[in-house]
Write a protein that binds this DNA or RNA. Structure first.
Length: 788
RNA sequence: GGGCCCGUAGUCGAUCGGUUAAGACGCCUGUCUCACACACAGGAGAUGCGGAGUUCGAUUCUCCGCGGGCCCACCA
């Protein structure tokens, strides 16, 4: 039935946002724009299921829901794919064209999967970060931030990926442990005891960029050397010996060489002590300024230099050392620090405003906020936003090749591509020429304005006021430090108000066999389409809710999916019963209800309240398990059994009361379940209730507290205790359940017996007991004596 | 080294201080009972990681261990 309903919903357009409706409150979801990889994986299933549960719930609650869908298209992986397919010899324009082609191909497969998952996206609000209108808004945002002096152009050491030949940021790095060689090198030093200073290093290939040697100020071994000089092996360069408290006395020999730049502390020391900068390598990781070794890259350079050092007797000894190395998260290759002219967004001084805005939001779960706060507290450098790649949004800047003066395009001319467009002004006032920036934006520059873009900023003020801020930002816990952080930052500086009111965080999906984050390389990977093929979309969606509380990592268990599928089967069969049992039933409420009817109505009322409260708090687990438990146990195990004799019997009043109750409760359950299982509920609803409307256009069940009835819950609860005893008796005595018992004696305190007298008829009929006797006792539990 | 999350039956996973600690999967025993054997009726299975404290009372709060996971710092 999945295809049938999917087509039906799309034809009816039941998920469309009504931009002109001013009566309904707006619920705008700042949906993640995924990177088009060609496959909608389980992480996406979890993320979008959460979003869709919330979207459907709010839609039914009377909100005007805006569920847009974007595509964050720029990025290295696409370039890599295109390079693989078409080689490296394409022109810039041709290359971009191929990237677009590839993107549209994979987006279309992902869209098919998302449609099948029944995500209630309004595709009229689909956007692509590769479209000119998106370029325009991103470039506009950079011009604004440049005017606010929050974007600047500067020479600065940046994290650099030699493999990708581009600047990257800390957020794009990951770490790995590896074993390396720790080389103890002999530096000539006239002031040292035997004329030699031993320095241990893992990076001998950077020796030519060594500008100083550092020791700890209180290190007695070397205090006499501070202010003197040492001579680098191989290059014979005289460098100063400097004291700094950040030197670790215990590590290596307690002497460290500073090269520009081996790691972050080199950068710190270089600036702190105003050391000169020698650029050790080029953008591809090949040595430069070394003389002999220029042009040799990375590992081969290291080997060659060690060989030469050994030959000339400069290596005292070598040790194995386990070292943590930073990798580029896209290509998994080691990164370097490189001095480079780049564009930056200022973070210093803004991070507190970001924290403040974030703390004013509701986070689900609450502690997820801490991840953002910790990240903000640990920030050290500004955000390098320029990338030396092709497939991305061009940075909208020209700069003077002589004085560095930055030239901006006019707003009307956006989007621009300074790499090929003529500058708006030919010559700089200093006489120099303006050159167009060739770098493109970091992908997070694109995606950090999603709530602004969807809301029509800055060109549609009316729409913007209507939509901004978004009600909720759903996203994975892994990108809090990037997507959430950058979005809040950019939005508060651009429009002065936080971008969303709530943040809904989902955990990572992990594999069943090892509990680790699902990945193809670990072999713990399950494809969504295989799950759907073996069960159903509705079952897979329910897994998202069943796999644990909101925000924590979710292990994919087949048992959850299979249970959900079993539940759907149960619901289907219960519906079949209700359908048969209520043929020809009137829709109006009968005057008199039986106690069992009142019992299930009271239980149902509690369910409505529980489900509503849970969904408002984004607690999908509680919401769905409550529905499951009510449907399976209260409705099917108890109530359906209670009413069988009535709907098959001749007492018209009793029959009508049961029929009305059955229909009312089942319909309520279907509505409560509709956000989780859109296909099954729609199918059943269409067969039993619909006059043409979709269940997804229906109202969420109202709380009707007059149906709450503690007294009746207690009485019928006691009735069910008796019936349970009857079933147990029949089971242990190998009697058929349909077998009639001659008598049952219920022994209980007087007050309980009085109440049970009201359900005596039900007791006899449901339990198939000829005579029921009541016997009073002082106090204690209810007992039942039975005989054939 | 700092921060955050977590540690409940074979497996998963609720219970935001109070009677016999949900529920699911799995396991055992019955039953084809007219919605459902993809079911029903029963049953076994947890000293709630260890220790201390707060409290009349702790699985639930605090602290200290131990053990996992994530993030950050360090990593010459």
């Amino acid at each position: 039935m999945e295809q049938k309903w999917q087509a039906n919903w799309e034809t009816k357009g039941i998920y469309s946002f009504d931009n002109d409706d001013s009566k309904k409150p707006v619920y705008f979801i700042d949906t993640p724009p995924p990177f088009p990889t060609g496959e909608f994986h389980m992480g996406g299933v979890l993320n979008w299921s959460y979003i869709d549960f919330s979207a459907r719930f709010h839609r039914m609650r009377g909100y005007n829901v805006l569920f847009p869908q974007g595509w964050d298209c720029h990025g290295f992986p696409t370039e890599v794919k295109v390079e693989k397919k078409h080689g490296r010899n394409l022109s810039r324009a041709e290359f971009r064209e191929k990237c677009l082609e590839w993107t549209h191909d994979v987006v279309s497969t992902m869209k098919t999967q998302m449609r099948q998952m029944a995500f209630s996206i309004d595709w009229n609000y689909e956007y692509y970060t590769i479209n000119p209108e998106y370029y325009k808004v991103v470039q506009y945002s950079l011009l604004k931030m440049f005017e606010q002096k929050l974007v600047y152009h500067a020479q600065h050491p940046v994290l650099w990926c030699p493999t990708c030949a581009s600047a990257i940021t800390k957020a794009e790095t990951e770490e790995t442990q590896r074993e390396t060689v720790f080389n103890y090198l002999k530096f000539e030093c006239a002031s040292a005891v035997d004329g030699v200073l031993l320095i241990a290093t893992t990076r001998p290939e950077l020796l030519h960029a060594c500008v100083a040697v550092f020791v700890h100020p209180s290190d007695a071994r070397y205090s006499a050397l501070v202010g003197k000089t040492a001579v680098t092996p191989l290059y014979n360069k005289e460098v100063p010996i400097v004291a700094d408290v950040d030197v670790d006395k215990e590590f290596g020999t307690g002497v460290v060489m500073v090269c520009t730049f081996g790691d972050k502390s080199d950068v710190v020391w270089t600036y702190r002590h105003k050391l000169s900068v020698i650029e050790a390598m080029d953008g591809r990781g090949r040595l430069k300024n070394s003389g002999l070794y220029d042009g040799i890259a990375g590992h081969s350079a290291k080997l060659k230099i060690i060989e030469d050092l050994q030959q000339k007797g400069f290596v005292e000894k070598q040790e194995k050392l386990v070292q943590t190395v930073k990798l580029h998260d896209r290509c998994k290759k080691p990164i370097e620090l490189l001095n480079s002219l780049q564009w930056f967004i200022k973070l210093k001084g803004v991070e507190d405003k970001v924290k403040q805005a974030a703390s004013s939001m509701e986070w689900y779960p609450e502690h997820a906020y801490q991840l953002l706060a910790d990240w903000a507290d640990g920030l050290e450098w500004d955000w390098c936003i320029s990338r030396q790649r092709v497939f991305g949004i061009p940075l909208p800047f020209w700069y003077c090749d002589c004085c560095g003066e930055v030239l901006l395009p006019s707003v009307e001319s956006l989007p621009v591509d300074p790499a090929k467009d003529k500058p708006p002004v030919e010559k700089c006032s200093c006489g120099g020429a303006f050159v167009g920036e060739k770098s493109i934006c970091d992908g997070w520059v694109d995606s950090s304005i999603t709530p602004l873009f969807v809301a029509g900023w800055p060109f549609d003020q009316k729409k913007f006021e209507h939509l901004y801020p978004a009600a909720v930002r759903p996203q994975g816990t892994d990108i809090i430090r990037t997507w959430a952080f950058y979005t809040i930052l950019r939005c508060i500086v651009l429009v002065g108000a936080p971008p969303f009111k709530q943040v809904l965080v989902n955990g990572m999906v992990c594999g069943e066999k090892d509990g680790k984050k699902m990945s193809k390389s670990l072999g713990n990977y399950v494809e969504a389409k295989d799950v759907v093929a073996r069960s159903s979309v509705d079952a897979l969606r329910q897994w998202a809710a069943l796999s644990g509380s909101t925000g924590k990592d979710n292990i994919f268990y087949w048992k959850d999916v299979l249970f959900a599928q079993g539940f759907l089967n149960k619901l289907w069969n219960a519906s079949k019963f209700v359908e048969k049992a209520t043929v020809g039933a009137a829709d109006c409420r009968p005057d008199k209800l039986r106690l069992s009817d009142e019992w299930i109505l009271s239980k149902y009322e509690r369910l409505v309240k529980k489900t509503t409260d849970s969904l408002r708090a984004y607690d999908f687990y509680s919401a769905l398990t409550s529905i499951h438990s009510f449907t399976w146990h209260d409705l099917c195990d108890n109530y359906l059994e209670d009413v069988k004799y009535r709907v098959y019997g001749d007492d018209v009043d009793s029959k009508q009361a049961a029929q009305w109750t059955l229909r009312r409760v089942l319909e309520g359950v279907l509505r409560l379940l509709a956000p989780f299982a859109p296909y099954s509920t729609e199918e059943i609803y269409s067969q039993l209730y619909s006059k043409g409307e979709s269940i997804h256009s229906c109202k969420w069940p109202d709380a009707e507290e007059e149906y709450l009835n503690d007294g009746v819950e207690k009485i019928v609860g006691a009735l069910h205790e008796v019936l349970s005893a009857v079933r147990k008796y029949k089971a242990t005595n190998a009697l058929a359940l349909s077998e009639e018992l001659s008598s049952a004696t219920v022994i209980a305190p007087e007050t309980t017996l009085k109440e049970l007298a009201d359900v005596e008829e039900e007791m006899r009929n449901v339990g198939r007991i000829k005579t029921v006797l009541f016997k009073a006792k002082e106090e204690g539990e209810l007992e039942v004596q039975l005989s054939v």
